[in-house]
Design a protein around this nucleic acid. Structure first.
Lengths: 343, 343
DNA sequence: TGGTAAGATTAAACCGGTTTAAATCAAGCC
DNA sequence: GGCTTGATTTAAACCGGTTTAATCTTACCA
């Protein structure tokens, strides 16, 4: 309702009897103003309650003072936790955080196409989206720094920061743990390997799974592999099918905790005791894993987001920084859903 | 790497042999251009691959083309789900979504102070943050539309949109359900009533709880009330204490599902069977409630966010819209954690 | 044929900052 | 006193759009 027009830099200038340029310099700690006038200007700023118009600054500086985050399905707990890491650090910086949610391949294409340019953002964080070759090529030409979190592409090594996890090794080690417990009939429940979003984590973990089996000379049985859209209910379906086999597995490795929960539900339905009749391992270590006592491979979700921002801010501060390729560690958290076979 | 400078509206104008103003009008569907020149201009636009600079538009239009969302602890599943509703609708609009996370009272004050002004955003969504009287006064003077989601303030009726839930009635009905099952020794586990964020949902649900007990002539016993910082572990502590009472409750109403999970854990620890020895009810109906078979009061989390955006967009389209005060319904979802007393 | 109105287009102002180039001023030196 | 130098400061250009005021056409009517 206050019809008083915005105070502009020219108002301050007039009041302080200097030019707008001087006011600008006084505010931005330029050495090109005398202490005397700076004090006078700041007094007037205070008095008129002047705050610079951000949009005008953006245009003038040629910067957006914003960081864009491209993120798919951020209600997934794992994604949300990464995003939380991003926000926790970025909210203390001068940058605005603009969210671009990706829920369809079309949105995804649009995001990768439009966002990584200086008109839109000074920097971009992309979470859990593995670029296709074509997209990587585009990203390599981006005129702003990009950080891939939980994703990578060989063509971007040395071009953009990448904070990632070795899902193949993660899957291998996790499967190895089950093998170590004496399991040989191990099922895998995951996302579709071919999916329009090019999600790769489930696929990579499955590769690791295969690798571990091969090294232990355990045959890979196709009936022990089920894929389905990501989600608890879908995973339950997959597990139901697998547990109905005449020669059912004694352990199931789920590509995520959410899916592991579905497996646990299917086991309960089938009247199987966990871990006595069936061992179950998940991936991520989100809160529900702790609640249910689920054995899982923990990855540093929050930290991955935080680290991504750290790298981006450093890059914005000093554009000559060398892009790094960081692999975050994982850790097996043993709880109550796994046991030696035959125990 | 492409050192080709950005294409500006003047480049297009030169190429199309018209003035920049005409290009602007041609692009923005102004009736003040002939079909002939419009076609010619759009051809050049195509040919030069011109896209208007958003920042320049913002400055010129005096709009930010952005919507700010103020949100506390968005990794809480309930908050995240509301945010998801916001994003789902807003990502199809022309507006950018700028997130302001609130994790400290200081951030909160800063947000309420700075964000609701036209330099920062064209509109503001505030999620689950009940304004204090002073803050409400400020918000009433905001020069952009604001929508309160899961929060309200009497001073803002008719001033800003409010999409809210009647937590008092929700708490009353939920407690009434337990009373209907024959329970008279009913505990309440919630957040601190006095908290620096002015979170009110737990408090209101507790009021409803008291109301229901009074109406049923059941005395309110202070030892049946425990408050603690929001969280599963903290709720477990609270419940642990309450269940250690010599005359322990036969039912516990938790202010949220997350806290209900903590109560379930405490019950398990204490060797109590649910629901035989103890009934447990939560609030929200987040995914974990379904997993654990938790009886709970469902509220429309996703829809609240979606509706908030709907109202905001409508207000941005037509500033004369009358601000509404909407109360979303809740619904009791009976699962496996509640039973008649003595069953 | 002159006058006028409607329609299309342009030139210029504007949004509110930052920054470059030019101007001013005081001090220092021979 | 004149000239140089360095420190401040100002005026003006610039960022890249939109919009108002002014100009130019063309059509139409008396």
């Amino acid at each position: 309702m206050s019809s008083t027009k915005r105070v502009t830099i020219r108002d301050v200038a007039r009041e302080a009897r200097v030019s707008p340029g001087t006011v600008s310099r006084a505010i931005n700690d330029s050495p090109l103003v005398s202490e005397d006038t700076r004090r006078r200007v700041l007094e007037v700023v205070e008095q008129l309650d002047y705050t610079p118009n951000v949009v005008a600054r953006r245009l003038s500086l040629g910067k957006t003072l914003a960081v864009a985050v491209i993120v798919p399905f951020f209600t997934r707990p794992s994604v949300s936790e990464r995003l939380n890491g991003v926000v926790s650090l970025l909210s203390h910086s001068q940058y605005d955080l603009v969210i671009h949610n990706v829920e369809t391949p079309k949105q995804r294409a649009k995001c990768f196409q439009e966002i990584p340019h200086s008109e839109h953002a000074d920097g971009v964080l992309s979470i859990s989206l593995t670029p296709t070759d074509a997209e990587a090529e585009r990203l390599a030409e981006a005129d702003v720094p990009v950080v891939l979190i939980d994703a990578e592409h060989p063509a971007l090594r040395g071009v953009h920061h990448q904070v990632t996890v070795d899902d193949v090794t993660g899957g291998e080690l996790t499967t190895g743990y089950l093998i170590g417990l004496g399991h040989t009939k191990i099922g895998f429940v995951g996302d579709p390997i071919d999916n329009p979003f090019n999600f790769t984590s489930s696929r990579d973990r499955y590769w690791g799974y295969q690798k571990a089996l091969r090294e232990a000379d355990i045959p890979i049985r196709p009936e022990y592999y089920e894929e389905n859209q990501h989600g608890r209910r879908q995973a339950r379906q997959s597990a139901r099918k697998m547990l109905a086999l005449s020669d059912r597995p004694t352990a199931i490795f789920a590509a995520s905790d959410t899916q592991a929960v579905g497996v646990l539900e299917a086991a309960r339905e089938a009247g199987l005791r966990v871990p006595d009749d069936l061992s179950v391992v998940g991936y991520d270590d989100i809160e529900i894993a702790d609640v249910l006592g689920l054995t899982t491979r923990r990855q540093l979700l929050f930290e991955s987001g935080r680290r991504g921002v750290e790298l981006l801010l450093e890059m914005l501060r000093n554009p000559d920084t060398d892009p790094v390729y960081e692999v975050l560690p994982t850790e097996l958290i043993v709880r109550d859903t796994t046991a030696s076979v035959g125990d």
